[in-house]
Design a protein around this nucleic acid. Structure first.
Lengths: 131, 131
DNA sequence: CGTCACGTTTACGTCAACGTCAAGCACTCT
DNA sequence: AGAGTGCTTGACGTTGACGTAAACGTGACG
């Protein structure tokens, strides 16, 4: 509450990102810090956007997808349409993630099989060595 | 059985990879096809290695990791040591994959939460529109 | 007044696993 | 001889999310 805006370093500390990342996000039009001369000052709006960006990344959205969703909210169309669109995109992403999990589970099961096989082979070696 | 070696196209058809992939693997020293003049001829050994490569990829090993494991078998040390080493690497990989799955599960749960929230918000819009 | 510490811009580098040309040889069919 | 097909090498392009280096500015501190 000391002030309404934050410097790049304060942002980095607060959100655990590097300056490079913030500048990169600005260049990609994900953030729009105002300028004090040459320096960036990040507003509440930027902070809200950054939170959404980081959350989106955890969900596996690409920065481009995130940008499109954020733009949706900037163009200030119907709140309901924005929400519906976001909901739809999120649902698709969820499906992707569940497919990913299925594949991962399959691979894990297969790898466990292989490990069991290897364990047995190693046991055979040990038996042979024991005599 | 027509012959012991296969051309690049036969390999591609048999293992569902592109010629580029096979040449790439050769350049990375994962495969060592012999040459008939300028053409590549893939031996049984190459086919065995390719199978291992493709399996390793399903498990999420990088090509470099796969190369190291394959090299292990070429250097022809003790069979037991090779197996033990492979077993160890595979186990580490399994741990990675299970961590991945945990993260993915967490993200999926979080995203489902968000979707539930969005669903409710949309329902509120619809109720508002219904009057 | 010097010198930090932090800020800036621009531009090129990184990593993985190939894809995509471009240009040319080798062989076969007609 | 010409056409077509398949294979070759070599080099650059792709994708995503930044890292890194160079060269410079600027404000605060002692």
């Amino acid at each position: 509450m000391t002030s309404d805006v934050m410097t790049i370093r304060e942002m980095c500390d607060a959100y655990d990102v590097t300056p490079r990342t913030l500048r990169f996000y600005e260049s990609k039009e994900l953030l729009f810090p105002i300028r004090d001369g040459t320096r960036r000052l990040f507003t509440r709006r930027d902070r809200a956007r950054l939170k959404l960006i980081l959350r989106g990344k955890r969900f596996g959205f690409s920065l481009e997808e995130i940008r499109q969703l954020l733009d949706l909210y900037d163009r200030d169309g119907s709140q309901e349409l924005q929400l519906a669109r976001t909901y739809q995109v999120a649902q698709q992403r969820l499906e992707q993630m569940e497919r990913q999990r299925a594949e991962l589970d399959e691979a894990i099961a297969e790898l466990k099989d292989q490990l069991a096989w290897g364990e047995e082979a190693l046991a055979a070696f040990r038996r042979a060595a024991a005599e």
